[in-house]
């Protein structure tokens, strides 16, 4: 492996440490917020937003998605589309119910 490559990796390592610190901080934030016992909507929004941020950090930096090949993106976009369908369509089907006597 070339010198430049090793330099690259060292830069990466610094990023990993930073991401690690941010993840720890966000963990503390989300636990702290939960002790406030907010209303359901607010609590769910805050918790999910923080989880999404943490998840994207892991995916982008640890799993290197930030600089991945197009093909991987294509696979993931397809998965996300069906994932969204899976999450929302059953919920829609449930909330749209024929009223029973």
């Amino acid at each position: 492996m070339s010198e430049a490559h090793a330099e690259d990796i060292k830069k990466h390592v610094r990023t990993y440490i930073m991401v690690f610190v941010v993840l720890l901080a966000l963990t503390i934030v989300t636990v702290a917020v939960s002790t406030l016992h907010l209303s359901t909507v607010a609590a769910v929004s805050v918790a999910l937003i923080i989880a999404v941020i943490k998840g994207s950090l892991v995916a982008s930096y640890f799993m290197h998605l930030i600089s991945e090949k197009k093909l991987i993106y294509a696979v993931l976009v397809l998965t996300v589309v069906f994932f969204v369908g899976l999450m929302f369509l059953p919920v829609g089907a449930f909330s749209d119910k024929v009223a029973l006597p």
């Binding site: 918790a47 998840g55 799993m63």
Partner: peptide, 22 residues
């Protein structure tokens, strides 16, 4: 192997608030 392991971590990042904090 790392990709798999980060995914396991990622799942927990969602499980933790959903199950414990909400």
């Amino acid at each position: 192997a790392g990709l798999y392991w980060h995914f396991v971590d990622l799942v927990w990042i969602f499980l933790f608030p959903v199950l414990y904090l909400l």
